[in-house]
Amino acid sequence: MSGPGHDALVVADLAVHYPARNGPPVRAVDGVSFALARNETLGLVGESGCGKSTVARAIVGLQPPTRGSVKVDGAEIVGASRAALRAARARMQMVFQDPVTSLNPRMTVGEAVGEPLLVRGIARGAALRERVAGLLTEAGLRPEDAGRYPHQFSGGQRQRIVIARALALRPALLVCDEPVSALDVSVRAQILNLLVDLQRAHGMACLFVSHDLAVVRHVCDRVAVMYLGRLAELAPRDALYAEPRHPYTRALLAAVPEPDPVVQRAKPRVPLVGEIPSPAHMPSGCRFHTRCPMTQAICRTVEPEWRQVGSSLVACHFAG
């Protein structure tokens, strides 16, 4: 099933619509496609509510999609049987945003990290303890920490525990949903360094979901920018940051406050007017037209096609 020749992850026309009690369904994800090679890190950025987490959850099979296909290491996740899904999950793991709720408060760190190995019958007893000790060390913790409970650790340390657990099965794909957003600045760097090191060491494919463009630039090879359930732009990192093609990408980049007053205050401002529309009432045509500084008549009626511009893929009539 798995083997060379496959991309680690192929997502095709993925859509997740949440039914609403009254009114039209929330089109949280509305036709997203991309692929992720082995050993590659893809960043998924966008503003809150644009559907990033939903994409992540659909990929690991925690959220059944409305339509589309997700292949992890060649195996289809959408519509897979329980057994097939369980098998596929040995190849992919997830790191969540909030390290506090990502760990069962009533389970020791050792039990949590060892659970994937135990329930899949890979190791038990002394062998399991040894594997857990190795994983903890790899994630920058001490083997003695196995006997302690999550509440005895700080946020950064808890995220290390979560990462150790995610690596237990040596996954081919690691999905990280805002892994450093809940952490303090001084701890963020530790976790980012760790993720970069581990991704390199294990040659994993990594989908890195974040709203922080500076963080994404730091860890990713390619970047996908998402707006209201769709990708606006998908480009290699350097192309995206040096030459953003989509008006939304430009606005987003301009809005990131640089921690350097000289650079930050010299930056041209690209003010985005208005608020983000609700995904239950999607604008017609280009879904960015209500806030886009470049809107033309055609944008209001015709949805832009996905086009190659330079090394970037862009969904805008006027990108160039």
């Binding site: 925690l62 040995a90 997830m94 969540f96 899949r120």
Partner: peptide
């Protein structure tokens, strides 16, 4: 953490 347990198998 429940989702994580599901992911663990």
């Amino acid at each position: 953490f429940i989702a994580a347990a599901e992911m663990s198998g």
